[in-house]
Lab assay of single mutants.
Amino acid sequence: MQIFVKGLTGKTTTLEVEPSDTIENVKAKIQDKTGLPPDQQRLIFAGKQLEDGRTLSDYNIQKESTLHIVWR
């Protein structure tokens, strides 16, 4: 499925993911596209910070959802 990651600059990155992907895995995909290391990424969805060990489905993140990224 496709999801979007929007940064503070307003730039949006598209990712191809599975609902079973962990947040850690998603951060690795973001690094592949942007070069930003996972330890500098904070992902937010529906006002919650996403924890590395959880999956996208744990947070009810579905296709075409938009996550927000904040740099540490």
Rank of each mutant, 00 (worst) to 15 (best):
A46F: 09
R72L: 14
G53D: 11
T34G: 04
R54M: 12
E24D: 08
L8E: 08
G53C: 06
D32E: 14
I23R: 00
I61H: 00
V26Y: 00
L36P: 03
L8Q: 09
I69Q: 04
Q31A: 14
L15N: 01
D32W: 12
I61E: 00
Q41W: 15
F4N: 05
F4A: 03
T34H: 07
T34K: 03
L8Y: 13
S20C: 06
D58F: 13
R42M: 15
D21A: 06
G53Q: 10
R42S: 11
P38V: 15
P19W: 06
L56V: 08
K48Y: 09
P37C: 07
F45I: 03
L36M: 13
I44C: 10
L8W: 14
G35M: 04
L43D: 00
T14R: 10
I61D: 00
M1E: 02
T13N: 06
K27A: 02
L43Y: 02
T12I: 15
E16P: 03
I44Q: 06
E18P: 03
T34F: 14
G35T: 03
L43C: 01
E16G: 05
D52G: 06
Q31Y: 15
H68I: 14
K27C: 02
Y59G: 01
E18Q: 09
E16H: 11
L50F: 01
D21V: 03
K6M: 13
D39C: 09
D39F: 10
V26F: 02
I30C: 02
I30M: 07
L36E: 04
L15D: 00
P37T: 08
I3D: 01
I23A: 02
E18K: 13
G7L: 14
K63A: 15
D58R: 02
Q62S: 12
T14M: 12
R54I: 05
Q62L: 10
E16Y: 13
I30A: 02
G7H: 12
V70Q: 11
R42H: 13
G53T: 09
Q2L: 15
I44E: 09
A28R: 15
R42F: 13
L67H: 00
D52T: 06
Q62A: 10
T34Q: 04
V17K: 00
I44F: 15
Q41K: 06
H68F: 14
G10I: 13
G10A: 08
G35Q: 04
I30V: 05
P38C: 06
E24G: 11
Q62F: 09
M1S: 02
K33Y: 09
R54T: 06
Q31G: 08
T9P: 12
M1Q: 03
P19V: 07
T12Y: 11
S65H: 06
L43V: 05
Q41F: 15
L67N: 01
R72Y: 14
K63P: 15
K6A: 07
K6D: 05
Q49W: 13
N60Y: 06
E18L: 15
D32P: 03
K11L: 13
L36S: 04
L43N: 00
E24T: 07
G10N: 08
I23G: 01
E64C: 09
L67A: 01
K33V: 11
P38Y: 11
L8S: 09
Y59N: 02
G35C: 05
V17S: 02
T34E: 05
Q40D: 07
D21W: 11
G47I: 02
F45L: 04
L8T: 09
D21F: 07
F45G: 02
I3G: 01
A46T: 05
T12M: 14
I30D: 00
I61M: 03
K11Q: 12
D32T: 13
A28Y: 14
K27I: 04
T34R: 03
T55G: 02
K11S: 10
D39Q: 10
V70M: 10
L50P: 01
T14N: 06
T13K: 05
A46N: 15
P38A: 15
E24S: 12
G7V: 09
G10Y: 05
P19Q: 07
L67I: 15
Y59K: 00
K63L: 06
L56A: 02
P19E: 06
Q31L: 08
D32G: 10
G53L: 08
I23F: 02
E51T: 06
I69V: 12
W71N: 09
G47E: 04
E64Q: 09
E51A: 08
Q31E: 08
G35N: 05
E18W: 13
V26I: 11
Q40I: 09
T13F: 15
N60G: 14
R54V: 05
L36H: 07
I69E: 03
T14L: 11
F45A: 03
K11W: 15
V17T: 03
T14E: 07
W71D: 08
G10R: 06
H68C: 09
I69S: 03
R72C: 10
K6N: 06
G53M: 08
E16M: 12
E16S: 12
K6Q: 10
A28S: 11
Q41E: 02
I44M: 14
G53H: 14
T22P: 04
F4L: 06
D52F: 04
K33G: 04
I61L: 04
A28P: 01
T55R: 11
T13Q: 10
K33L: 14
T55S: 07
D52S: 07
K29S: 04
D21M: 11
L8N: 07
R42C: 12
Q40A: 11
G47A: 04
Q62R: 09
R72K: 13
V5R: 01
Q49S: 10
E24H: 12
K29W: 04
T66Y: 07
K27N: 02
D39W: 13
S20L: 09
G47M: 04
L50S: 00
R72N: 14
Q62K: 11
Q2S: 09
S57P: 02
T34A: 04
W71M: 14
H68K: 08
L15M: 05
D39S: 13
Q62V: 13
M1F: 15
F4I: 06
I69W: 05
L15S: 00
S57D: 08
T66M: 10
H68Q: 11
L67K: 00
D52M: 05
A28M: 14
M1C: 03
L8F: 13
S57L: 10
P38T: 14
N60T: 05
I30Q: 01
